[in-house]
């Protein structure tokens, strides 16, 4: 179990453009950190730096305060699960899992004991003689996980391990990974671009964009208080309204006053809020933060309806579960939940 730190990591594949740019990251002992970000933002690259496949152009990586930057991959003792699983096609499940232990010069009895144990944990006992090509996606994924865990790694690195599974299995495996991770108390970095997966599994989240970390914090912090427009957009804040300060009070472009708990010290800012945190109210509603808009599109979401409305200062999306139906062209009044408003 270890604490991992990346300091000022810079990586470039072609020597010209930096894929990672002075990246700093810290994972505490026993924690599960999720790396969240859009495709191509450098999540896999970050993971490959930690694993030791990539020599960073600049910066250092520490594991428990030991400089690991120049330590070769095979001496790091990190467990890895790739998106493609990369099982050894010529070895059966048992041999795949035992591969790392055999290299550690353990005696046969110990190896057998450890492998049998981990196969049981991962629910794979009955498949131990099968070749990877004769396994289902979920079973392969578990073999990859068992193979990485059995060597008792200092650190577990998972690169979108669930992306090849169907929705139901994803959910099961997510819970399973979390359970095993907590049970073994193993420090873990989990790469994903699925925000729901990320929030449900992690202790800490790092949102990446263009090779830098945009925001780092607990899942709750990130979910409720995104610090930048990019993070807000990425995690489902769909409404963005430009505000400016008039005599210390924030106003929309058309003069609608917006009251928030902390209006900050900038003269101009962007208000953002989730569609779920806006309510449609009656015409005689008296209160703060009310916007007027005209319904443009109505979408059925299952548990609610989503209305895309046009206001004098742009598009506002609201989810309404009240059951009252509004049609295209209807004028509606919406109130923003003061506590849920985020300024970026």
């Amino acid at each position: 179990m270890a604490e991992v730190r990346l300091e000022n990591i810079t990586v470039s594949y072609d020597g010209k453009n930096n894929v990672l740019e002075g990246l700093n990251l810290k994972v505490n002992e026993g924690e599960l950190l999720a790396l969240l970000g859009p495709s191509g933002c450098g999540k896999t690259t970050t993971l490959r730096v930690i694993a030791g496949f990539i020599d960073p152009k600049d910066g250092h990586m520490y594991c428990d305060d030991r400089d690991f930057t120049r330590i070769p991959v095979h001496k790091r003792n990190f467990g890895l699960v790739f998106q493609s699983y990369a099982l050894f096609p010529h070895l059966n499940v048992y041999e795949n899992v035992a591969f790392g232990l055999k290299l550690r010069k353990m005696d046969k009895v110990t190896i057998e004991k450890k492998v049998t144990e981990i196969l049981k944990v991962c629910d794979l006992t009955e498949f131990k003689d099968r070749l990877p090509k004769n396994l289902s996606g979920g079973q392969r994924q578990r073999v990859a996980l068992a193979r990485a865990l059995v060597i008792e790694p200092e650190l577990l690195l998972l690169d979108e391990p669930l992306s090849n599974l169907d929705a139901k299995l994803r959910l099961n495996m997510r819970v399973e990974i979390k359970r095993i991770q907590k049970k073994l108390g193993i420090t873990t970095v989990f790469v994903t671009h699925d925000q729901e997966e990320c929030f449900s599994i992690s202790d800490k989240v790092a949102v990446m964009n263009g090779g830098v970390i945009e925001q780092f914090g607990t899942p709750e912090e990130i979910y409720t208080r995104p610090k930048t427009e990019f993070v807000a957009r990425f995690i489902g804040f769909e409404n963005f309204i430009k505000l400016h300060k008039v005599d210390g009070v924030l106003e929309c472009a058309d003069g609608t006053k917006i009251s928030v708990d902390d209006s900050g010290d900038k003269d101009e800012c962007l208000l953002t809020i989730r569609p779920d945190d806006i309510k449609i109210v009656a015409d005689d509603y008296k209160g703060e933060n009310v916007l007027c808009g005209e319904v443009v599109v109505r979408t059925y979401l299952g548990k609610s309806y989503q209305y895309e409305t046009m206001t004098p200062f742009g598009k506002v999306v609201v989810n309404d579960a009240s059951g009252t139906l509004y049609n295209t062209g209807d004028k509606i009044r919406m109130v923003l939940d003061k506590a849920k408003i985020v300024l970026v």
């Binding site: 991959v73 095979h74 790091r76 467990g79 890895l80 790739f82 493609s84 050894f88 290299l103 060597i151």
Partner: peptide, 18 residues
């Protein structure tokens, strides 16, 4: 798939042996 080879490295296998 060369990620298979990389996987062997992470499990403690030196490059030539892998």
């Amino acid at each position: 798939d060369f990620s298979i080879e990389e996987m062997a490295w992470t499990l403690g296998c030196p490059k030539i042996k892998a």
